[in-house]
Design a protein around this nucleic acid. Structure first.
Lengths: 239, 239
DNA sequence: GTTATATAGAGAAAAATTTATCGATATATT
DNA sequence: AATATATCGATAAATTTTTCTCTATATAAC
């Protein structure tokens, strides 16, 4: 009973990560003038199991109608709502390098409830300038500003060696969640959320998939050659 | 029997993604002069279950010794080996914008078996220049070059609207795995690996964790206030 | 109106993943 | 030398996640 109030509706991390994909696909459907959509249709487009799609939507508290599917507008609104994209979270970004600028340039973050309000730098040459329309401020000013402005999210796009220092400043400023793009394991208080975006881990996954694919193909090729050799023997009348 | 040859040792995606984290931590240990390491130690440092660490290492085919743990050098070599970081994969990167430049600047990709050999662009102003020491080539030249150089990996860092066209060119060039940073669902032949790096999905996960945290805290605060009120009533002698 | 059909909804089954347990073993200590 | 202890290795249990199956329902076709 009380638990319902204490936490948001529980959902598997994997489901949560699929919902934005559905949302994106549904928007393209809407742009094409569609009014209704079914789970099999979504599954087909996104190469996902239809039942899984249905379970994900169920987890997000969205219902449809048998034989009809889901009303597109209701579904889009439901996902938006469930993901909290109506409420904006303000964020500070630290590290006005290329990655930082790329993130500031991401067009749709604001529509996903993320508003990067300023960026911070160490480099005096950059401080005081503007990046993608956002002020570049001195890193020392972060803690106080974060407190004053009640900014809850910090994004770290500095080199690995500097990341822990930045994280400490963020914690000092009362930041509650850190989106870390630096390849280091940050040490944080228990009540601060750490979300690592680690491209090396991602690369490991990609590399292995490719290695599997290439190995499989090499094996198939090898088997084919063997078969060809056997066939040649047969043709030659060895048996 | 034959299956052993057909595919690499099977491993859970989640395990695979943890191995680079272990590797990174182990390198810092090695730098500190350590010779041996145990699963509980790794687990403690990386906030992972020790049994899970052991299972991951087992999946990678690495063995240790009871009571002692793992020899650091053997363990590092084992992970490197398992992840295929000894063999280099060459890659083409398309989209010489900020994200592309950030990726080209990632210091350690080469140590993880990824060698980005060139980048490609649409913008004539950029073509012919160099980015992080790598040539910026015209996008039309990609298919032939990919074939000639046997490049197997394509990295897409162009805007969403251009991504599918780029993917098609990559497929035309015989590229086997695409690391896609654009927020679109690419349509590819079945035998081409697609690895999406979708920050919006990642953001959804972060946002929800934060929302949960803040809601929980608000609830706790509310309960405390209620308790305080009750206490006041009690003090006032209402009962 | 009746029948056929596609799809949500609900629950069960299966698969995968994580966590716990216990015995075996190598080292350190007494 | 005997004992204690930490950790691997293997197995089992628990949990989570995915997939399957069946039923009910809304629409369309006849």
């Amino acid at each position: 009973m009380v638990d319902d109030l204490l936490v948001t509706r529980p959902i598997a991390e994997a489901s949560l990560r699929r919902l934005p994909l559905y949302h994106r696909y549904l928007e393209t459907l809407k742009a094409q003038g569609a009014k209704y959509v079914s789970c099999p249709e979504i599954g087909l487009a996104l190469k996902a199991d239809p039942t899984q799609v249905r379970k994900d939507l169920e987890a997000a508290g969205i219902t449809g109608r048998p034989k009809v599917g889901y009303e597109l507008d209701v579904l889009l609104a439901g996902i938006t709502d469930f993901l909290g994209w109506n409420n904006t979270n303000e964020a500070f970004l630290v590290g006005a390098g290329h990655l930082g600028e790329a993130l500031l340039g991401y067009p749709q973050f604001s529509r996903c409830g993320l508003n990067i309000v300023a960026s911070f730098e160490n480099d005096p040459a950059k401080i005081g300038t503007r990046l993608r329309g956002k002020e570049v401020l001195a890193i020392e000013t972060l803690p106080e500003l974060a407190r004053r402005m009640h900014v809850h999210i910090g994004i770290i796009t500095v080199p690995a060696t500097a990341a822990q220092k930045i994280a400490d400043l963020m914690v000092e400023g009362g930041i509650r969640a850190i989106w870390n793009f630096a390849p280091v394991q940050l040490v944080l208080p228990q009540d601060v959320i750490l979300h690592n975006e680690d491209l090396y881990c991602s690369l490991a996954s990609l590399s292995r998939k490719l290695a599997d694919l290439l190995r499989r193909e090499a094996q198939v090729k090898h088997l084919k050659e063997q078969t060809a050799v056997s066939a040649a023997y047969l043709e030659g009348g060895f048996f």
